[in-house]
Amino acid sequence: MKKIFSGFRENIAYPDSSNFRVILQKGCYHIDPHWHPCVEIILPLSGDYQVKTEEETYHLDKGDIIFLHSGTIHELTGSSKGTRLIFQFDVEILYSLREFQSLLFSFPSFFILKRNIKNPTYIAAEKLLLSVILESRRKKLLWEASLYSLVLQLYTLLFRSSALQMQILPGKNPGRITGRQETHQYQEKFLAVCQYLNQNLSSNITLEMAASYAGFSKFHFSRLFKEFVGMSFSQYVTGQRLHKAKLLLLTTQASITDIAMEAGFNSSSTFNRVFYQSEKMSPSGFRQSHAKLKT
């Protein structure tokens, strides 16, 4: 199926009017830096593969799995003797579920699951992706519904895995918590807090409100939040609002003012100032830089 490029953006042409694109790609392959509004999962079945993001180059061996989230600029290179599965699907499939919405705002721009036959998460993920190949080849009745189900199973698996939770919550556990069960309970509590925050980004969420939701005093919550999440409460909320705003800038034609309000900023001027401090460019400049023509 052909790819349609508009500058750095790759517009995916899904076959059969579906929301999925499954490719078994063989031989030498290279594609220059680009991004797309879909999710892309790559699994080298033989040979190796190289993925370069804006910051670093990653080498994938046979069996490694990389999850590239929508809006991530990346460059791909495959070896001449390699074969790899490339699975792309509409990101709206994930955002259609409320539980997923909150966690996706904390999902890293890309995530690599290294091949490890002793890791239950890896074994289950590989099995689901191999099922994707079978379903796309057979195209039996309700094959698209089956792919939809496999995607949901895959991301449920990822969100529950400790490896991904450590990326979503990169902070260190509080020193006073030593028991594995107690640590797990605190992880679940602060994942729930982050979910609550992400679901209410457009509201005027205060530290007091979040502390009350978690059942802690303001002081205790503030300290635990920073230790578990790796940043202060205000840094987290601002970061998630910026993440949501960038997603809206990339995937919609909404005005800057509407995006500012939807992401939870109290004015477009505040949004522009905070966005520039983070990205060193304006929101409109960010949108244009991802759509500009290659030179």
Rank of each mutant, 00 (worst) to 15 (best):
93 I>G: 02
94 L>P: 00
94 L>Q: 01
94 L>S: 02
95 Y>T: 13
96 S>C: 06
96 S>M: 04
99 E>H: 11
99 E>N: 14
101 Q>K: 12
103 L>R: 12
103 L>H: 07
105 F>D: 10
105 F>I: 04
105 F>T: 03
106 S>E: 02
107 F>V: 00
108 P>E: 07
108 P>K: 06
109 S>A: 11
109 S>W: 09
109 S>L: 07
110 F>K: 06
111 F>L: 04
112 I>L: 12
113 L>Y: 03
113 L>G: 04
114 K>G: 06
115 R>C: 14
115 R>Y: 07
118 K>Y: 14
118 K>F: 14
122 Y>T: 08
122 Y>D: 12
123 I>L: 15
123 I>W: 05
124 A>S: 12
125 A>D: 09
125 A>H: 06
125 A>Q: 01
126 E>R: 10
127 K>I: 05
128 L>P: 02
130 L>R: 15
130 L>A: 07
131 S>W: 03
134 L>I: 14
134 L>H: 14
135 E>G: 01
136 S>G: 03
137 R>H: 14
140 K>W: 11
141 L>V: 14
141 L>I: 14
142 L>K: 10
142 L>V: 04
143 W>R: 09
144 E>A: 02
145 A>I: 01
145 A>N: 15
146 S>E: 13
146 S>V: 06
147 L>V: 04
149 S>R: 02
150 L>W: 08
151 V>K: 05
152 L>K: 09
153 Q>N: 15
153 Q>K: 13
154 L>A: 09
154 L>C: 10
154 L>Y: 03
155 Y>Q: 00
155 Y>V: 01
156 T>Q: 15
157 L>S: 02
158 L>M: 12
158 L>G: 02
160 R>E: 15
162 S>G: 04
163 A>G: 07
164 L>E: 04
164 L>S: 04
165 Q>F: 05
166 M>N: 09
167 Q>A: 07
167 Q>G: 00
168 I>H: 02
170 P>M: 11
170 P>E: 13
172 K>L: 10
172 K>W: 03
174 P>H: 09
